[in-house]
C-alpha cells in the first residue's frame, strides 16, 4: 500500500498538471519544434527520430501489454512487415510514401489478425513464447523471400518521403517533423481509444476476462481488434523506419528490437502513454551517450528490467490517478458547442 504522504504529493502534482494542461502541451510542442534547430548535426537528428519511433512502437505495444495485459515479444515482426511493404512499394512501384506507409500498416494489421486469432486463449508467458516464435518466423521470411525482400541483400536506396516534389530529409528537418506529426497522431488515437468504451473493455480483459465475458463484452473481438491496432501502429512506423535507414534487411528486425520495445514500456510504465515516451527517451539516448558500453547494452536492459520488476513494477511513470473520474471532454465539448451553435442558427432561420 502506498502511504498517505506519497498519495498527497501525487495528488498535488496531478492537480497542477490538469490545471495547466494547455500550457504544458504548448511547452511540449515548443520543445519538439525547437529541438531539431538546436541539435548540432544529422546524427543527433537521427537520435531524435529514433526516440520518436520507439515512442510510437511503445504506443503500439501498449494497446496489447498495457491495456489488455497481453505480452508480445514479436513486435519487430510487425515493424518489419510494415517496413518491407513500404520499401517495396517505394522502390519497385515508385508509390508515394503516404499510401505506401498506410499499406505497410495494413499488411501488419493483417498479420496481427493472423497471429491474434489462434492465440486468443493464450496469456502471459505462453503468449510471450508464441510471439517470440512469430518474430522469428517473420525474420526468416524476410531473409528467404528473396524475390520480394531481397533476401540477405535486403532492399537498398529506399527514397526519402516526398510530397509534390518536396523531399522530407534531415537537412530541411522535414523528415523529423513528419515523424513528430505521425507520433502525435498515433498518441491522440491511443488516448481517444483509451478514454472510451474500448479502453474500458480492454481493461476488463486485462483484469478479469471471465467477468468481462459475463458482462456481455465480446472479448474475442476486442482482443483481435487490439492485436490488429497494435500491429498496424508498429507497421506504420516501420515504414518510416525503412525511409530513415534507407536500407533494410532481415537483420534490422531481430528480437533485440522487440525486447527494446518491451523495455520502453516496462521502464516508463505500461498502461499509460507517458510511460513509453519516457522509456523511449531513456533507452534510445542512453546507449548513444554511453557509446563505450554499447556491447553490454542488453546486459543493462536485463538488469534494469529486473530492478524495475522488483522495485517499481508499474514503471517509473505508472500510477493510478488520484483525481476524480473525468468524462472525455476537451475536443468534444468544443465540438458540442459548435454543433449547438449551428443547430440554433438553423432553428432561427
Amino acid at each position: 500500500m502506498k502511504n498517505k504522504k506519497q498519495v498527497n504529493r501525487l495528488n498535488k502534482f496531478e492537480t497542477f498538471v490538469s490545471k495547466n494542461k494547455v500550457l504544458l502541451v504548448l511547452l511540449g510542442l515548443a520543445v519538439l519544434i525547437i529541438a531539431p534547430f538546436v541539435v548540432p548535426n544529422d546524427y543527433f537528428m537521427r537520435v531524435l527520430c529514433v526516440i520518436l519511433m520507439y515512442c510510437t512502437f511503445g504506443f503500439g505495444l501498449n494497446i496489447l501489454l498495457g491495456e489488455m495485459g497481453l505480452m508480445s515479444l514479436g513486435q519487430a515482426g510487425f515493424v518489419g512487415a510494415g517496413a518491407f511493404t513500404t520499401a517495396v512499394l517505394l522502390t519497385t512501384l515508385k508509390w508515394n510514401f503516404i499510401p505506401a506507409t498506410l499499406c505497410g500498416a495494413l499488411v501488419a494489421a493483417i498479420l496481427g489478425l493472423i497471429i491474434g486469432l489462434p492465440t486468443l486463449r493464450l496469456h502471459g508467458s505462453y503468449l510471450a513464447i508464441v510471439t517470440i516464435g512469430f518474430g522469428e518466423i517473420m525474420r526468416t521470411i524476410f531473409l528467404n523471400w528473396t524475390s520480394v525482400t531481397g533476401g540477405p541483400r535486403g532492399i537498398k536506396s529506399i527514397p526519402r518521403p516526398s510530397l509534390f516534389g518536396l523531399e522530407f530529409n534531415y537537412a530541411n528537418k522535414g523528415f523529423y517533423f513528419l515523424i513528430v506529426l505521425t507520433t502525435i497522431l498515433v498518441g491522440l488515437f491511443c488516448a481517444a481509444l483509451h478514454k472510451s468504451k474500448y479502453g474500458r473493455a480492454f481493461a476488463t480483459i486485462k483484469q478479469d476476462e471471465l467477468a468481462a465475458t459475463l458482462m456481455g463484452i465480446e472479448t474475442t473481438r476486442y482482443k483481435v481488434i487490439g492485436f490488429m491496432l497494435s500491429a498496424a501502429i508498429s507497421g506504420l512506423m516501420g515504414g518510416y523506419y525503412a525511409m530513415m535507414q534507407r536500407y533494410i534487411d532481415s537483420n534490422s528486425f531481430i528480437s533485440d528490437m522487440s525486447v527494446m520495445i518491451v523495455s520502453c514500456l516496462v521502464i516508463g510504465g505500461a498502461g499509460t502513454l507517458r510511460g513509453p515516451v519516457l522509456g523511449a527517451i531513456l533507452l534510445v539516448s542512453f546507449p548513444e551517450i554511453f557509446r563505450d558500453l554499447q556491447d553490454y547494452r542488453f546486459v543493462f536492459y536485463g538488469l534494469i528490467m529486473i530492478i524495475m520488476m522488483v522495485v517499481r513494477p508499474a514503471g517509473l511513470l505508472g500510477w493510478d490517478s488520484t483525481l476524480p473520474y473525468q468524462l472525455p471532454r476537451s475536443l468534444s465539448e468544443r465540438r458540442m458547442k459548435s454543433l449547438k451553435k449551428v443547430q440554433e442558427k438553423g432553428d432561427t432561420d
Binding site: 481517444a192 474500458r200 481493461a203 476488463t204 486485462k206 473520474y325
Partner: peptide, 29 residues
C-alpha cells in the same frame, strides 16, 4: 469486480452492451 477501475467505471462496464458507438466515433469524438 475490476479493482483497477473506478466504481463508476465498473458500472459503465455493466452498461457496456448498451453503449452504442463504433471505433470511428470514439477516435473522432
Amino acid at each position: 469486480v475490476y479493482t483497477k477501475l473506478r466504481v463508476v467505471e465498473n458500472i459503465m462496464v455493466g452498461s457496456h452492451i448498451h453503449t452504442d458507438y463504433n471505433m470511428l466515433d470514439a477516435i473522432f469524438r
